[in-house]
Amino acid sequence: MREEIVTMLLQGIGETLYMSVFATLFGYVIGLPWGVALCITGKNGIKRNSGIYFVLDVIANIMRSIPFLILMIMVIPLTIAIVGQSYGSTATIVPLVISAAPMIARMVESSLVEVDAGEIEAVQSMGAGTGWIILHVLLGEGRVSLIAGATISFATILGYSAMAGTLGGGGLGDIAIRYGYHRYDTQIMIITVVLLVVLVQIFQGLGTWVGKKSDKR
């Protein structure tokens, strides 16, 4: 294989990881508190509040029902305002975060509502406040499920980042479209797909391993 293609693929991997890692990170900055809020204001939550829950719930549903490619186009003005341009890896992070945050919020919510209500009741009986319960019981006891959720989120975001390639987002998806589709270079398309599969495998394996390691049940 020609050296420049190898360089291009390596750069593609780098960009894909760059987008996925930062999008996941910022996605959690928004999605984690959002998920916690959904959990505690929900039906069996410790700060039940159907009004707040309704608003957070509806926003999550609306944002999650917009197809990613359309969302990418919709938020172009915002992307330009934040990053200064609408194409390239850094610019792609913006729609990725917007799309990932509500999904992450749902992941977090479903992990946290699984935490044993008895454990929460026990620390409440000791006088724990809401902050303590969130930090030590919800996040602490739900951590195995949270890690599993983070792994799924990361793999999904990685897939979205490849999709973003079709709109000039960079990364492996970009290469697959430009070489594989527009130039009919099946070989390169297959290589990028294989690389994406390997990346997802590695991170899924890593996530599962960390989750298992931290589980004391």
Binding site: A122, V123, S125, A128, H136
Partner: peptide
């Protein structure tokens, strides 16, 4: 006031991801 009224449960309700000594420390950390 709840610090002065302790409670134990049928299903124990220990924090599963914390070891025994950390569990005993919980009320004091609170």
């Amino acid at each position: 006031e709840r610090g002065r009224i302790a409670m134990i449960f049928q299903s124990f309700n220990l924090l599963q991801q914390k070891n025994v000594i950390s569990n005993v420390c919980v009320p004091m950390m609170i």
